[in-house]
């Protein structure tokens, strides 16, 4: 299944110094691609490029055999959904936050409350949190709400930037279980994740892309 999702010679510059990074990797259906590397290696930038939230200098991405440029950008972002490390919090309650993306034109399906409640439980959050003002959430709660919000949109591939960074061990492993359950729950899914944690290596189907190693060969 090498042709599920892959990128070839994605090339980009980092910062004003213009250090160049060129990477290629692939993701199998139902699999996880882990992006590693020291701070400033360009991990977050790579995620944003793959989600087409930022432009790269050259290179191509293919999803199910289709070149990314042949797919309308809004549709691409809906399929390859990026979740930033700092969670975006909108005005209103947690429920308003979960509902927010469903008001967009591209969303044909309706918000499913019971699915949201089920997700909250799996992420060790209580139902009651739905009525809470989202701005009053702790960092770890907001990160999980934002993750759930992305998952409820049912993307094909989730791009995650250190999803467990602000979490304690217990909720961190809940997030991990949740994600590995999600990626195998239905065919046609995948996860690309930036992570410093090493505990993800032991999971079957995980590939590692080390930006620290990659760029030594280049420039």
């Amino acid at each position: 299944m090498a042709d599920f999702f892959y990128f070839e010679n994605i090339s980009y510059h980092l910062g004003a110094a213009g250090r160049r990074v060129i990477v290629s990797a692939s993701l199998a259906e139902g699999g996880v691609l882990l992006i590693k590397g020291p701070s400033g290696a360009g991990k977050t930038t790579l995620l944003k490029i793959l989600a087409r939230l930022q432009e790269c200098d050259s290179g191509q991405v293919f999803f199910k055999g289709e070149n990314w440029l042949t797919i309308p950008v809004q549709l691409w972002r809906a399929m390859i959904s990026c979740n930033s490390q700092k969670p975006a919090v909108f005005n209103g309650t947690v429920l308003d936050n979960l509902r927010r993306p469903f008001s967009l034109k591209i969303r044909k399906e309706a918000f499913n409350l019971s699915e949201a409640e089920k997700g909250l439980l799996e992420l060790l959050l209580s139902r009651e949190i739905l009525g809470q003002e989202a701005r009053t959430l702790s960092g770890g709660e907001a990160a999980r709400v934002a993750l759930l919000r992305s998952v409820l949109l049912n993307p094909d591939i989730l791009l995650l930037d250190e999803p467990a960074a602000s979490l304690d061990d217990k909720s961190g492993s809940a997030v991990r279980d949740f994600l590995y359950h999600w990626v195998r729950q239905r065919p046609g899914r995948g996860i690309i994740m930036v992570s410093h944690q090493h505990d993800c290596n032991d999971l079957p189907g995980t590939k590692v892309l080390d930006l620290g190693v990659q760029q030594r060969g280049v420039n």
């Binding site: 939230l53 549709l75 809906a78 990026c82 930033s84 927010r100 967009l104």
Partner: peptide, 8 residues
Amino acid sequence: EALLSFGA
């Protein structure tokens, strides 16, 4: 940026 990544 979040809205854009939801497909806005």
